[in-house]
Design a protein around this nucleic acid. Structure first.
Length: 495
RNA sequence: GAUUCCGUAGCUCAGCUGGUAGAGCAACGGCCUUUUAAGCCGUGGGUCCUGGGUUCGAAUCCCAGCGGGAUCACCA
């Protein structure tokens, strides 16, 4: 092509003045429009019939057909632009710029009658060709490994994939507007932390050369946001990438996004109202309805959501009232429900286990589960009425937790004791136990107002809102094993 | 981490109980001035994931490894 004097990667801008979507929306309702268009995109299909051809052009908004006629794009005697450049040297996947006018073909398809054609970027690799007609699809690009590893290809070839990510972006935008609109401040806190905290998980560990110190990638930002509440902000939130060095599944990626929110002078009842309102707003914003199709179910986010205490939920699904049981009785109840237990499990763990086995996956419609065992929640405030419980709730939806929240523990003495018992667990070999954060305790000692806190899994919520069965479908680049072991010897030598 | 299924052309797949590879689309060469999964004629294209083993002979059987999916465990 270079021999023909054509730069396959020209440097100049191409003056686009219209998108495929705009044309489809406004034409032919007003057929005086679009008589001098300039549009750019990728060639997705081509049908050549001698001196005339049709091609489908895909831009960021969609596809539009382009009609090329030899004598229209080559007005002089030199027909090589059509005969040689277009027919021989252009391929599916090439990015081109087209000028022309919009018209409707005999077959009734809105198309662009091209008067000019320019190659903007050559594609050297063949594109998977997906064809569709009447709902049937040929040669779909479906291999999950290739779709995730080469997301760019997936996005080119599978248009609905873009829609999923647009909805994810919309979700975050709505949430951000919702929270900002209430006057809360969006903040940023450290990803690299000398101590990891705010959740029970194994961290990624790294090292800072100049400081000569170990740092951890955050597993949560909770403790930093609460420091900001101590500092006098009434409401702070952060969309936080968190990192947990744990197993992967269709619900878990090593890095994931959580939105955490802390609001002073509120409690967990207040926070439930906020979550309902916020998620309902998101559903309405994305789908125009509180009802969302998810797999086999229709989930309705209309307020108010059902609220159960954990004990009520267990009684509802198993018929067993465990609220007054001691550890031995709980163990017997678990055995009766075919739940395996081991000696290390305390009362709280047993309750949590029973709930997880018998209730969680049955909760399809959004439901708040409240009042968790104290042992499982070292950062939550003790329940105002019930011994052994904390003021905590989770929202369960489609059988999965979508958020976790509590009245935050602001008693520094109680907090220190909770950390101490976590460290006991750590000594007994629980590698997910929390570590004591002396600076956080110091902050609490200055006094933190009563505060309600929330963590909401953005990826999980996006899965529900976009009807995606796997977290990999709502992450552009889900974590995969490295494709090739390159320079194997080099890396071994570095070790 | 455990179990299980899968890995053949650029894409989607076929290849039965072992005889060293096939289709459609894409590509390449032709014909065709409003087609739409365009069509018609012709051509090329594969370390059958990798490495071992069994065998006269392996894409096929066996073992190990790599990669992926699903389920489970841990967790959000």
């Amino acid at each position: 092509m270079r021999e023909l004097g054509i730069d396959p990667y020209p440097p100049h801008l191409f003056p686009v003045n219209v998108t495929a979507e705009e044309i489809h929306k406004q034409y032919p309702a007003d057929d005086t429009l679009f008589q001098d268009v300039s549009i750019a995109g990728r060639i997705m299909s081509r049908r050549i019939m001698g001196a005339a051809s049709f091609a489908e052009l895909q831009d960021a908004t969609g596809r539009i057909q382009v009609y090329f006629k030899r004598d229209e794009i080559c007005t002089g005697d030199d027909k090589s632009l059509y005969n040689v450049v277009f027919k021989k040297h252009m391929d599916l996947g090439d990015i081109i710029g087209v000028t022309g006018r919009v018209f409707v073909t005999k077959m009734g398809e809105i198309s662009i009658h091209a008067t000019g054609l320019k190659l903007l970027a050559k594609s050297l690799k063949p594109l998977p060709v997906v064809k569709e007609k009447e709902g049937k699809t040929w040669d779909a690009f479906t291999d999950p490994e290739q779709r995730y590893r080469q997301r760019y290809l997936d996005l080119i070839v599978n248009p609905h994939v873009k829609g999923v990510f647009e909805q994810r972006s919309q979700l975050m935008q709505i949430m951000r507007n919702f929270l900002s609109g209430k006057g809360y401040l969006e903040v940023e806190t450290p990803v690299l932390q000398p101590l990891y905290g705010g959740a029970s998980a194994r961290p990624f560990k790294t090292y800072h050369n100049t400081l000569d110190t170990t740092l951890y990638l955050r597993i949560a930002n909770e403790l930093y946001l609460k420091r900001l509440i101590v500092g006098g902000f009434d409401g702070v939130f952060e969309f936080a990438k968190d990192f947990r060095n744990e197993g992967m599944s269709r619900f878990h990626n090593p890095e994931f996004t959580q939105m955490e929110l802390y609001v002073a002078y509120k409690d967990y009842h207040w926070m439930m109202d906020l979550v309902e309102e916020m998620v309902e707003t998101i559903a309405l914003g994305i789908h125009g309805s509180t009802k969302v199709e998810v797999g086999q179910h229709t989930i309705d986010f209309q307020r108010p959501w059902k609220r159960f205490t954990m004990f009520e939920a267990i009684e509802h699904f198993t018929g067993i009232d465990i609220s007054g049981m001691d550890e031995t009785e709980l163990r017997a109840a678990a055995r009766q429900l075919n739940i395996s237990t081991d000696a290390s499990m305390g009362k709280g763990k047993l309750i949590d286990e029973i709930f997880g086995e018998c209730c969680e996956d049955k909760l399809i419609q959004p439901t708040f589960i409240t009042d968790y065992p104290l042992e499982m929640s070292p950062l939550a405030k003790k329940h105002r009425e019930h011994e052994g419980l904390v003021e905590r709730f989770e929202a369960i939806c489609n059988g999965k937790e979508i958020c976790n929240a509590f009245s935050e523990l602001n008693d520094p003495i109680d907090q220190r004791e909770r950390f101490m018992s976590q460290m006991e667990l750590g000594k007994r070999g629980d590698d997910e136990a929390m570590v004591l954060d002396e600076d956080f305790l110091r902050a609490l000692e200055y006094g933190m107002p009563p505060t309600a806190g929330l963590g909401i899994g953005i990826d999980r919520l996006a899965m529900i809102m976009t009807n995606s069965p796997s977290i990999q479908d709502v992450l552009f680049f889900p974590q995969m094993r490295p494709e090739k072991r390159q320079n194997d010897e080099d890396s071994e030598q570095e070790e």
